[in-house]
Design a protein around this nucleic acid. Sequence first.
DNA 1: AATGAATGAGCCTTCATTCAT
DNA 2: TATGAATGAAGGCTCATTCAT
Lengths: 188, 188, 188, 188
Amino acid sequence: MGKGEKTKKIIIETAQKLFAEKGYAAVTMKDICEVCGLSRGGLYRHFSSTTSIFIAILENDIEINSEIVSDAIKAGTPAIRILDGYFSEEKAALFREDNGFYFAVHEFAFHVPEQRSYFEQRVSAAVNLVSMILKYGMKTGEFRVLDVDDVAYHILSFWDGLKTSSPMLTITEEFVDRQIHLIKELII
Amino acid sequence: MGKGEKTKKIIIETAQKLFAEKGYAAVTMKDICEVCGLSRGGLYRHFSSTTSIFIAILENDIEINSEIVSDAIKAGTPAIRILDGYFSEEKAALFREDNGFYFAVHEFAFHVPEQRSYFEQRVSAAVNLVSMILKYGMKTGEFRVLDVDDVAYHILSFWDGLKTSSPMLTITEEFVDRQIHLIKELII
Amino acid sequence: MGKGEKTKKIIIETAQKLFAEKGYAAVTMKDICEVCGLSRGGLYRHFSSTTSIFIAILENDIEINSEIVSDAIKAGTPAIRILDGYFSEEKAALFREDNGFYFAVHEFAFHVPEQRSYFEQRVSAAVNLVSMILKYGMKTGEFRVLDVDDVAYHILSFWDGLKTSSPMLTITEEFVDRQIHLIKELII
Amino acid sequence: MGKGEKTKKIIIETAQKLFAEKGYAAVTMKDICEVCGLSRGGLYRHFSSTTSIFIAILENDIEINSEIVSDAIKAGTPAIRILDGYFSEEKAALFREDNGFYFAVHEFAFHVPEQRSYFEQRVSAAVNLVSMILKYGMKTGEFRVLDVDDVAYHILSFWDGLKTSSPMLTITEEFVDRQIHLIKELII
DNA sequence: AATGAATGAGCCTTCATTCAT
DNA sequence: TATGAATGAAGGCTCATTCAT
């Protein structure tokens, strides 16, 4: 990896933390310079705007959950186990310190309409993931839902609401566990 | 209402539309001057920052649903009818043009931590409202839920996710109707 | 004249001197702030670029020679006298301290192609002026030229060359007088 | 010619076109890097500023007209023929695409006073050239002028005005031919 | 109450210039 | 010789904020 690539990687990783902390709109190029320990000109050599940095973060931040899930399905893991895995990851995300990045993604999509495709991709990827698990659970006879896609979207939307608000609310683990329990009742 | 009060009202109403359109962070005092047709000094006579204007909007925007619901309960309206009313209002909000204001409220809460109480109040008021309906439905025997508060929060979080993302996604009426149907199955 | 108008006038007049001194391309908004004793924001309230300031100067700098000449013609002043008057003004311009403004106008026309109309107007106005004098002199029998327009353009081009180079060369009064004498021989 | 010399030559030639197109003041080292296909460091190895590059261009661009003219005189070519040759070269320059370089030279002289000697040399070389032709024409009895130097400077100044403005004005060949004709009448 | 002129701070952006490789 | 990463200074531009009118 060349020197330029290394710097780019540092920028992407450091900036992501900053966006998680301050949201999308409040971050300036100057802020990013500071946290990266780079001069103005040095940062501009690699990125010309916060928008382009954010896009680079999104491209770098592709979730690989999908593979984990399809591998588990191939391996014959019980659907409920896979679902639990998914839920515990989502739960963990709620309590991670970079918890605010999820909100920043929403803010980015709101403020930069021409880049909404990234947002839409994330949403549909997530819906597909949940759908995949549900369909598999239907096949194994573990789950019983009326319309897989609707339920998948419902679950997604629920998590979305929770994750978007979590930086602003005090949420306890027990509370999240009860919510997870509730969803599981809905589909079993 | 004195002239000052009138101007204040105009500012609050006009600015709310602007926040709905551009979100919280992107709106400047200058923007508000322009849409209100006021000069800089004129606006500052009434408000000293976008934050204070946003707070005034929030205070002005207190939802009166609560009364409608409690009145309906007193009147002995079937719980399912009340719930349907609530849902159709939420649905309507998704397709209103000021659809983005809901997102702006989240942005405000994220960026102005010291004012999160407004956000928390809104959330808890909404949870209480749904709780009230659910409890009433339990009493009338129309609904059957395990834990009223958990379900209320679940429903809230679902709507929250939907409303927060709706400005960025294309959502159809049929889709929302199916989601509402799904929730109703969950509690009946 | 309102306060804004006054400030605008000050900017136009002060900036013209600066352009005369430094040329068009080398002048920055910051420079103009400094010479005008205005803050950045204060200057930007009135003009958004050096280009717009330069245009305002050009609009303000319309030469009124044309009227002087036509008045003189109406009054029956000998053509040679009118021509002498024109030449002595041009000569004076060569030795004035704002001598460089003429070059700045050329620079402006070169660097801002979309605004060349101002340059073309100046050139054709000047040609017309000289033409007018020559035609009058032909009528009074004082001058004898083959083609009035060609000679007018020739004279203009000569002065243009002199004026454009004068800030960079050391030119003496005697030299200019001899050149004027030469032109007069050409047309008499 | 070593590799360094070759690169230097490329820079000088490529940069001259750029100066002809954009003038002196608007060209940056970065621009020159780009048109030369050189990196920043690569360019700086040879030249340390746009000024030094411009000077190198001027040194490289010494006109050899003088020799052509003196050779023609030695060969006994009629003065009018030599003058015509000079004029047609000047005319050609007006319609060449690097037409703007002449203006760039003026700009350079205006903005870099400490290097005006190059400008002065060019002017006096040109005056001398025309003087030489005129004197020769006087000797052969072809021309009749009062003061050779004054007329030479007059002619020069006329061309200078034309060449300096030509990038900004639309000039036709017929127009230039008529102007040349006019000058010839002046001296014959 | 309201206007709009002015200030000054702060971010954006582009370069000239240097330097390790 | 040449590359391209990095610095830092300079100028552009926008705003929040104040103030005389």
